Amino acid sequence: MPLHLIRKLESFTRLSVLDRQALESITVEKQRRLGAREDIICEGDRPSHINLILDGWACRYKQLEDGRRQIISFFLPGDLCDSHVYVLQAMDHSIGTLTPVTFAEMSRESLIQITNRQPRIMQALWWDTLVSASIQREWTVNLGQRSATERVGHLLCELFVRLRTVGLTEGDGCLLPVTQADLADAMGLSTVHINRTLQELRGAGLIVLKGRHLTVPDLKALQVASLFNPNYLHLDHVGRHLDAGAVAES
């Protein structure tokens, strides 16, 4: 069930019972599960449906001929791997799993049907698309201007806030099921530099990393140290307040 997607979209607007039922109906059509380190879709493939991550972590990446990889974004539960990807003739990047992943394959026809019938869902999906573009802009700033410590701290802040939005944090902690090599490929750093940077963040008391679990004892302090401003995630719930009177029937 698309619980995490619903929670995320409700950061923009309050979905009605009918809206939730419509989303649930298309995500039970076809579900697949892949193990860790497998491709959901590869560069050059023709996309025929939209993938929704239900459980697990995935990433968007580009790989050079010599094997070097750049992770362009992380996909968390509730994330759509591009709601308009079917417009492309061929994929210009790959999407791969980082952990075992369960995902729903949503057909173009089903999505068009529900967005035509449920305009609130259409608006929320456009919001999601714009937020994804905003995140990419912030990653560009991260890679181009922030120091290594700021860069890694900023990413950890982003992931924690995104996970909290969909209900996947517990207090000041969350799962972080990625390797240092994954972080290096996302941040444009070597694994040695990532290891040293994580040690610096630990030493400053800004994070606690135990296995696959991240604890952020003082999120505000990590945000300040990383020059993190969450405004680019657009999670201020303005849409929910504006829409409150219009959804009394829900």
Rank of each mutant, 00 (worst) to 15 (best):
R137F: 11
E65Y: 01
L176G: 06
A186L: 15
I53V: 15
M187E: 09
E24W: 01
S190M: 09
L214P: 05
D172Q: 15
S16F: 05
R68V: 00
R137C: 13
V208M: 06
W126V: 07
H234F: 12
M1L: 08
L219F: 10
I53Y: 10
N231R: 13
H234G: 07
S94A: 05
C81T: 14
L80F: 02
L76M: 09
R69T: 05
E10S: 10
L18D: 06
I114T: 05
D66H: 08
T140D: 10
T115V: 07
S110E: 13
T140N: 12
R33W: 12
H241K: 04
L64C: 13
R162Y: 15
R7K: 15
C59H: 12
E24N: 13
R117F: 01
Q123E: 08
Q123I: 09
A124M: 03
T102A: 01
E10Q: 11
L64Y: 12
R117N: 08
I207P: 07
K8G: 12
L206T: 00
P47T: 11
F103Q: 02
E158W: 12
G239R: 02
L201W: 08
L98I: 11
E65T: 08
V87S: 08
T129Y: 11
G211A: 00
L219A: 11
S83L: 04
D218W: 02
L23M: 05
T129E: 13
W57M: 13
Y232C: 08
A90S: 11
V224P: 06
W127F: 12
T97D: 01
R46V: 13
C59E: 15
T129C: 11
M91P: 01
S132N: 14
L9C: 15
E170V: 10
I112F: 02
R33P: 07
A104K: 04
I50H: 03
Y61E: 14
V17N: 13
L242A: 04
L15P: 09
R240H: 03
R108S: 07
R164E: 14
N116V: 07
W57C: 08
F160R: 10
P217L: 10
F12T: 06
G239E: 02
S110I: 01
Q89L: 09
W127L: 05
A133D: 15
K62E: 09
R120K: 15
R20T: 05
E170Q: 13
E10V: 03
Q31H: 06
D39P: 05
L227Q: 06
E138A: 08
R33C: 08
G245R: 03
L3G: 09
T129P: 06
S132P: 11
R108V: 06
P230T: 10
H234I: 15
G78W: 01
T99H: 05
I71A: 03
E29M: 05
E38F: 00
C59W: 03
P217V: 07
I6Q: 02
G44K: 09
A186Q: 15
E200R: 12
G173Y: 02
Y232Q: 10
R32S: 01
L168C: 01
R60F: 09
R69Y: 05
F74K: 08
N229H: 15
V216R: 09
R137M: 14
P217T: 07
D66G: 14
D55N: 14
L227Y: 03
T102H: 01
A148V: 04
